[in-house]
Amino acid sequence: MPLITYRKALNDALAEEITRDENVVILGEEVAEYNGAYKVTEGLLARFGPKRIVDTPISEAGFVGMAVGASMLGLRPVVELMFWSFAFVAFDQIVNNAGCVRYMSGGQIRCPLVIRGPANGGTNVGATHSHTPENFLANVPGLKVVAPATAYDAKGLLKAAIRDNDPVMFMENTLLYGEKWEVPEEEYIIPLGVADVKREGSAVSLIAHGRAVLTCLQAADILQAEHGISAEVVDLRSIRPLDEETLLRSVRKTHRAVLVEENKPFCGVDAQIAALLQEKAFDDLDAPIQRLSALDAPAIYSPPLEKIQLPTAPRVVQKALAIC
């Protein structure tokens, strides 16, 4: 299988869906002539022209809202946010319009819309550019939230998101854009709402989404090599809809869970998962659920400090050792 970058996987998914469906249109700042601030849309303007790949001014509320409106009439806009941090400028459009219009119309309206872009810390761009709003958005019934950890998942999930008839918030990671994974040449789709066991194990479940999955895989290596502990790594992939079955199956097998996310702890995604596990797998748990999130402050700029503000593999190991 060819090794391709996470960036290229996204680019391929966009190109395939643009080719497949004439209603797919890419909108965002610097997506066309500049080829994307992070080059995810590289080459698309040259291949598909300015009707399909559209540069916008710096008006997030305006063009996100425009995409919501266009989706109501059957377009399938894929809006790039240069950073998910800028979504706050467009929050009303995302939450009130994309999130509620179907409900308030009694189901008359569909919003087949994707909003995508990086949502991560760890790149020393300061608090205003390092937000991870997956928990905020997953809090809105009506919105779907996806966070791929590998190139393979990024491609299959983005294609599913574009074909989905509901608004999908697609959260990428600038630190992963240049990383490579095996991705098959033939077409595939990864349905939303299906988690993935990235590593089988028996003694503890490390449950994560996005880049934290990779941190957990490293931690699992350390746990095995240095402590003889077999850790299973479960990648949510899709946060809402959430694959409860896969999570419960893993915890029923290992009887221990460490939840890891790069988000802040308060009302983070893992708070929901912890509640779920204690409610539905209480008798299967042999130890309290452990959580590891970013240290609870706005993202610090200072490069060496930001590294330790985010979850690290040694800290995941510590959390696992505390219950194994």
């Binding site: 300061g126 608090a127 205003t128 200072s302």
Partner: peptide, 9 residues
């Protein structure tokens, strides 16, 4: 800003 904001802040 004690290293918290960086050049933009």
């Amino acid at each position: 800003s004690k290293g918290k904001g960086g050049s933009m802040h």
